[in-house]
Design a protein around this nucleic acid. Structure first.
Lengths: 176, 176
DNA sequence: TATTGTTATACTCTATAACTATA
DNA sequence: TATAGTTATAGAGTATAACAATA
């Protein structure tokens, strides 16, 4: 590959700090995510995508179509079907017919699902609060603000990767 | 944005800022990671774990044992074998006998591997620098410092999850 | 018996694509 | 023909466990 030649001279390593920041951020994210996943599994026998799906429904009391769930979870349809099937079989969500379109239906939390989600959400928040307990209120705000800039830049830049392979999981919750 | 607020409204929510920060951080991480993965695949026909393995070797010119690679990559041995096999078959790394222990060997970058890694590392750094281009030097430093506190807290706390399921990938690079 | 590394297998999370049934 | 949803399959990335050879 002659790509080496082409890549020469792009950055003479002027910004190693960005690299260090990235690795640290990745480490933090993984530490927290691993903890959340383990907690969800051990305490609620569930997974992050399932939690995510229920979180979406919790915010839409009238229910969501598979369509909408897929879009909001940033995941393709087949996966949503599989997760929904599981949750239905456990009585946590239900599929309700949509009047006027016999192809579609709305997925809703059942009372049992709503109750379980409440418990999970509370515990989830506790994990997250703990994860950032080393920071003060102001520092959390600073972090949030700076990452907002990073996010905005990442989302607008690079139109040559328009519809990438897709996120790995459950990022859906950041709606902004 | 209003959806975020609605979500937080569901919980008693004394610390919704931590939750919002977490979701934003997760989004940022995934945006950058997705981009890096896509770039590695498209421009170098490789993956993040492969890149990570080569990065480890680049820092250890004398080579590393499978053992060491496994530990540094925070991944179990079978996976390291598989990745190493691939890289060997492409001539990017080689297995050298270890004098005095016929069970083990050292894995080293070949000259071709070293050359390819140099190109990849340069491009990788460019992606990362771009990802944080919205921030100034001081802000990058601030982020790095604050996340250092988060990391330290996450690593020391919660001894009840001693050896968790393990990270998803390539975090190894954060050595500190 | 302990350690190094390999092999075989399985699980999680995701994607693509072919398919059914409505519209 | 287009859309809603399902099914089947594949792939990346990881884990565990049984195994070989050597220590």
């Amino acid at each position: 590959m002659d790509k080496e030649a082409r890549l020469q001279g792009t950055t003479p390593a002027e910004h190693p700090e960005a690299l260090r920041l990235w690795l640290r951020m990745l480490t933090c994210t993984q530490l927290i995510e691993t903890r959340v996943r383990a907690g969800l599994r051990e305490q609620f026998d569930t997974t992050l995508p399932r939690f995510d799906l229920m979180a979406q429904l919790e915010r839409a009391p009238e229910g969501l179509k598979m369509n909408e769930l897929s879009r909001r979870m940033m995941v393709t349809g087949g996966n949503v079907t599989a997760i929904t099937d599981q949750l239905v079989s456990e009585g946590l969500v239900q599929r309700c017919d949509v009047a006027g379109d016999r192809r579609a239906y709305r997925v809703q939390l059942t009372p049992a699902g709503r109750a379980q989600f409440a418990a999970m959400a509370q515990q989830h928040e506790a994990w997250i609060v703990d994860a950032f307990a080393a920071l003060g209120e102001k520092e959390v705000a600073t972090l949030h603000r700076l990452l907002g800039r990073v996010k905005a830049h990442s989302q607008t830049a690079v139109p040559d990767l328009p519809s990438p392979p897709g996120p790995t999981t459950h990022l859906s919750l950041e709606t902004s």
